[in-house]
Simulated scan of single mutants.
Amino acid sequence: MRVNTLKRAAVAFALALPGAAIATVVAAPAAHADGCYTWTRNLYQGRSGEDVRQLQIRVAGWAAYGAIVRIDGRYGPETAGAVKRFQSAYGLRADGVAGPQTFAKIYNLQDNDCTPKHFSYTELDNGCGKGGWSGGPLSSSATRENALRTMWKLEALRRGLGDKPLYVTSGFRNIACNKQVGGASDSQHLYGTAADVKSGTSSLCRVARTARTHGFSGIFGPGYPDHDDHVHVDSRRENNSDRTSNSRSWSAPDCEVG
């Protein structure tokens, strides 16, 4: 842990230096913070690459109302806007440029396996009590990647609810499990892109309303059939249009969400 901390500090220092100095300091292979991902340059509109894609995964939950952040590795206006909202939410200078302070906050939020600190793969893989990511329409690696993206959106939603506990009651379900619980044949749970949640401190209606500004294109809560004891959130808009509608679908009639 001490080594990772020192390496992370060195990278942050390098990012803060003028361009010529950065080239000198970061010439060696980049260290990975906490066994996950480390950024070695400032990111802003016009930049592209894997480092942008990794950033997008972590700020996708800070999309504008009803919007999404595409995970495409291109730093455009929607990514800059999400970075600004992330920065504002955590008391950083909200300029839309991802630099040392923004990365330091992300490092603080992520665990060794790249999951956000308040959620885990175990929570998202709880369909019918069996572990693993196989048995769905996608490969296990693609499903697991989707679950990671879902967790980062949930981390943003949790922050939007005042950083109070948010509990996942159902995440990924394989095809057999989905049938067992009576899930829709095209359920987003099959792809790792959905979670059913409830809060220990916030009403379900507050959760459903707040989710509208955290990158979820599917939201179903109180008043929608069989959703009076939880809120379902998913990322159907980013999912393949052959499997589901490419637009958002919100319904929580008791909360006037729709």
Rank of each mutant, 00 (worst) to 15 (best):
M1T: 09
V3L: 10
T5R: 11
L6N: 05
K7Q: 11
A12M: 12
F13Y: 15
A14L: 08
A14F: 14
L15V: 10
P18C: 13
G19N: 14
A20V: 09
V25S: 04
A28P: 07
H32D: 11
D34G: 12
C36P: 00
Y37E: 05
Y44N: 08
Y44K: 13
D51H: 00
D51W: 00
V52H: 04
V52F: 02
L55S: 04
I57C: 00
A63T: 03
A63V: 02
Y65P: 12
V69D: 01
D72C: 12
G76K: 14
E78Q: 13
R85T: 07
F86T: 01
G91R: 04
R93I: 08
D95S: 02
D95Y: 03
G99L: 08
P100Y: 06
Q101S: 15
Q101I: 01
T102A: 09
F103M: 07
I106T: 10
Y107T: 10
Y107C: 06
N108C: 05
N112Q: 03
C114L: 04
K117H: 14
S120Y: 11
S120N: 12
L124M: 14
C128W: 06
G129E: 06
K130Y: 05
K130W: 02
G132M: 14
W133T: 13
S134G: 15
G135F: 08
G135M: 12
G136W: 10
P137N: 06
S140A: 15
S141N: 12
T143E: 06
R144V: 00
K153H: 13
L154Q: 06
E155I: 06
R158L: 07
R159G: 04
G160S: 09
G162P: 07
G162R: 11
D163V: 02
K164L: 08
L166C: 04
V168E: 04
S170A: 14
G171Y: 02
F172I: 05
R173M: 12
N174H: 04
A176D: 15
Q180R: 15
V181D: 12
V181Y: 13
G182Q: 03
G182A: 01
G182T: 13
S185D: 08
S185K: 07
Y191M: 02
A194R: 03
A194C: 05
D196L: 03
D196V: 06
K198D: 00
S202C: 05
L204S: 03
V207W: 03
T210M: 13
A211G: 06
T213H: 09
H214F: 02
G215Q: 05
F216D: 01
F216E: 05
F220C: 02
P222V: 13
P225T: 12
D228W: 09
H230E: 07
H230S: 05
V231S: 12
D234C: 04
D234H: 03
D234P: 01
S235T: 14
E238T: 08
N239I: 00
S241L: 01
S241V: 10
R243W: 11
T244C: 02
T244M: 06
S245K: 03
S247L: 09
S249P: 00
P253V: 07
D254G: 14
C255E: 12
C255R: 13
E256S: 15
V257Q: 11
